[in-house]
């Protein structure tokens, strides 16, 4: 993208103009997320910068919205529900999904395309339709409004991500390793846990992280399948935004942004490690 020394003025203008345009688009992408971080330390119950904040006066900033989040029973209940639901859903989708991904990566799988289409479908179908169908069906079988129902629904939504990431990792898996292990007398279970699993672990973990974030961020399905007892953090934010918009939401949002940064970093590190293990350059 370097400008050649013989570039004309027009080309120069276009070159820098393009960079400015790209800068503005990046600003559009990042600024909305970044702007809520300082706003969450607002000492007032406003959603905009007070004159004091712009003058960097220390008493214009406070942690009161964070204090509210950590003391308000509604938010704490929502947090604990989220923490109870997301890991269970993740465990379910990772264990079943990894097993199936191993099966799908075998040489001879009958109806592979049809099976793949069914397993990926929760990602394709719009959430509102999944939510509607689950609401109808789960109320028929008595799962609507139960913890179990929400966990099962979230596990189903997370499965496509596990399948996609783990099958992608298995593409680079050297099958002769399992044969070597079998020839040395290991049974298939032992081979799986001692040989295959350590090698595909990065894929499994990033699939699990995707499944976790899917459940942790999910609001449409839980709104319909859950009841007041399963009110999760995103649900609480949703009602907060719709009814009485309180600045505590910004504090929660900031905490969630921090969590996403941590998750993004983990996935990125795992991806590079997995590519290094497979002998590919990180890219």
């Amino acid at each position: 993208m370097d400008l050649p020394p013989y570039a004309t003025t027009g080309q120069r203008i276009w070159h820098y103009g393009f960079k400015v345009i790209c800068g503005l688009i990046f600003f559009f992408l990042i600024a909305p997320i970044m702007v809520i971080i300082p706003l969450s330390f607002n000492a007032e119950n406003f959603f905009t910068f007070t004159p004091g904040m712009l003058a960097f006066e220390s008493d214009a900033y406070s942690l009161k919205h964070y204090r509210d989040f950590f003391t308000n029973p509604d938010w704490q209940q929502a947090l604990s529900n989220s923490v109870k639901i997301a890991p269970m859903a993740t465990i379910l989708s990772v264990s079943l999904g990894t097993l199936a991904a191993v099966g799908l990566s075998q040489d001879h799988v009958p109806f592979r395309r049809a099976i793949m289409a069914i397993l990926i479908s929760p990602m394709i179908v719009p959430l509102i339709i999944s939510a509607a169908g689950m609401y109808f069906f789960y109320s028929r079988i008595g799962l609507q409004g139960t913890y179990m129902g929400v966990v099962l629904a979230h596990a189903a939504l997370g499965i496509p991500f596990v399948i996609i990431t783990v099958t992608a990792t298995l593409v680079g898996f050297d099958r002769s390793l399992t044969r070597a292990s079998a020839s040395l007398g290991a049974d298939p279970v032992k081979t799986f846990f001692r040989v295959q699993m350590p090698l595909i672990l990065p894929g499994v973990i990033s699939g699990g992280l995707f499944a976790f974030i899917t459940s942790f961020d999910e609001v449409v399905v839980v709104l319909f399948v859950g009841s007041a007892n399963q009110q999760t953090l995103p649900w609480q934010m949703f009602t907060g935004l719709r009814e009485q918009i309180s600045p505590t939401i910004l504090a929660v949002a900031t905490i969630l942004v921090a969590i996403s940064i941590a998750l993004l970093a983990t996935v990125e590190i795992l991806r590079r490690r997995s590519e290094r293990l497979r002998g590919m350059s990180p890219g």
Binding site: F26, L29, I30, P32, I33, V35, I36, L39, F47, T48, I213, F216, D217, V219, P234, M237, F238, L241, I245, I249, L250, A253, L256, V257, S260, I261, L263, L264, E268
Partner: peptide
């Protein structure tokens, strides 16, 4: 800068726009 919004909770982004 592209992946961070992708990973950020949908409700965080919606509340940001609301604000």
């Amino acid at each position: 800068l592209v992946l961070l919004p992708f990973w950020t909770s949908l409700l965080v982004r919606t509340s940001a726009w609301k604000v």
